[in-house]
């Protein structure tokens, strides 16, 4: 009996948590600590390292490519926030109307693109953005009855708009699922009470629906910002494994990849990684702060 109790309190927990702790420690915590060391080193491939102190960060501040990548990434993120999320909410509101027939089918249709996966979306959109024969230009030509013959060089002159468009196709339905779930949780009694009190549709939306779905909204915004800031595959593949003309499609993670794995400087890549991490943590803290402030009011 006593041996049994010792087994329960000492050994059994580690049978369950042990594999996880070992793997997590080795492949998450150790690299995390190592990234702090690497950020102060210059490396030539994974084997040769040289201590450079704060010079990585000094160089980063004056690195025009890094700032360009950050600007591009911010542009992509804002595009996702201000185009994709309103579309997602709009689709959710349409589907949330009572008595819509075929709701499941519409939801499945809108959601399907997010199953395709970023690398395959990027490959699929390659011919769509093609200048001469691409679907987008040809579609615009067809829509205007042949009057207009656009030859937009999407992947040369409108890189960020194109990437935002591809991401819109892929993620609008994904975010819609969150909004729809939130909308379906809005209390029916509250809506009825508002109607009896003489609120019109807009007032109900503004004063009942919005406050009720706000927590999920905040979650979706944060998820979108964090995801968009780490965008890599879309621009990397659509721009043929490069930053595109004048690096117009270079993102932060792409720059990290180029410095770390093409140039071979894992140190500088880690410095970029830390700036990205601190930026995202800052955004998460800001979101929490705004959230608290809202709830206090």
């Amino acid at each position: 009996m006593k041996r049994n109790r010792i087994y329960h309190s000492r050994v059994a927990p580690w049978i369950f948590v042990g594999p996880f702790v070992v793997s997590f420690g080795l492949f998450t915590l150790w690299p995390l600590l190592q990234s702090l060391v690497l950020a102060f080193q210059q490396t030539f491939g994974p084997a040769t390292t040289r201590w450079v102190g704060l010079r990585n960060f000094e160089y980063l501040i004056g690195d025009p490519l890094f700032w360009q990548a950050l600007g591009n990434t911010a542009q992509f993120t804002l595009g996702s926030l201000f185009i994709q999320l309103p579309v997602a909410l709009g689709l959710a509101l349409l589907l949330n109307r009572p008595g819509i027939r075929g709701r499941g089918l519409y939801r499945l249709t809108f959601f399907a693109p997010s199953l395709v996966g970023l690398p395959f979306v990027a490959i699929l959109f390659g011919p769509i953005f093609e200048k001469r024969t691409g679907l987008l230009n040809a579609g615009l030509h067809w829509l205007t009855g042949g009057a207009w013959n656009p030859e937009f060089a999407w992947m040369q002159n409108y890189v960020m708009s194109s990437l935002i468009l591809a991401a819109l196709w892929m993620y609008a339905g994904f975010n819609m699922v969150y909004f729809l779930a939130a909308l379906q949780n809005v209390s029916k009694e509250l809506l009825e009470a508002a109607t009896i009190d003489g609120c019109n549709a807009w007032q109900r939306f503004r004063h009942v629906v919005i406050p009720e779905i706000r927590p999920v909204g905040g979650f979706v915004v944060l998820l979108s910002v964090i995801g968009s800031f780490q965008m890599f595959e879309l621009s990397y593949i659509l721009l043929n494994n490069s930053g595109g003309p004048d690096n117009r499609g270079l993102t932060v993670v792409m720059y990290l990849y180029q410095t770390g794995f093409l140039t071979g400087d894992l140190g500088y890549a880690s410095a970029i990684g830390w700036v990205l991490a601190l930026l995202l943590m800052g955004i998460a803290l800001l979101q929490r702060h705004l959230n608290r402030k809202y709830e206090d009011n």
């Binding site: 492949f27 998450t28 150790w30 690299p31 995390l32 190592q34 990234s35 690497l38 490396t43 994974p46 964090i226 800031f229 780490q230 890599f232 932060v252 993670v253 990290l256 990849y257 770390g260 794995f261 894992l266 140190g267 890549a269 880690s270 990684g273 830390w274 990205l276 991490a277 995202l280």
Partner: peptide
């Protein structure tokens, strides 16, 4: 963020 661990994991 995942990309932070790319370089140290590779090493």
């Amino acid at each position: 963020p995942g990309p932070l661990l790319l370089a140290p994991s590779f090493q």
